[in-house]
């Protein structure tokens, strides 16, 4: 498997095919990490508004994305 030191990062700048594929993967990774961090924040008693502020999005957006599977809306 490729490691960051082996693969040239020129791909990120020059080649849209690889670059855009990387963006897509980054978004997926960010989504997964968001699930973990939002859950952790809620477990610590953060409000949806506080989480939304930290993420820089609206409370509605966070609620819609993360509240549907939880009991404590």
């Amino acid at each position: 498997m490729a490691s960051p030191t082996d693969v040239t990062t020129a791909a990120a700048a020059d080649d849209p095919d690889t670059g855009l594929r990387a963006i897509r993967a980054l978004r997926e990774l960010a989504d997964r990490l968001e699930v973990l961090q939002v859950t952790a924040a809620r477990d610590r008693g953060w409000s949806w508004q506080q989480i939304a502020d930290a993420l820089g999005v609206s409370k509605q957006a966070v609620h819609k994305k993360h509240a549907t599977s939880r009991r404590d809306r």
Partner: peptide, 25 residues
């Protein structure tokens, strides 16, 4: 969807991220 090669191309080691996530969660 977690395309390891694509992430490596922008300098992210997915194994490391996964290890850190699993250590915490």
């Amino acid at each position: 969807p977690l395309d390891a090669d694509a992430l490596a191309a922008v300098g992210i080691d997915l194994d490391q991220v996964r290890a850190a996530a699993e250590a915490a969660f």
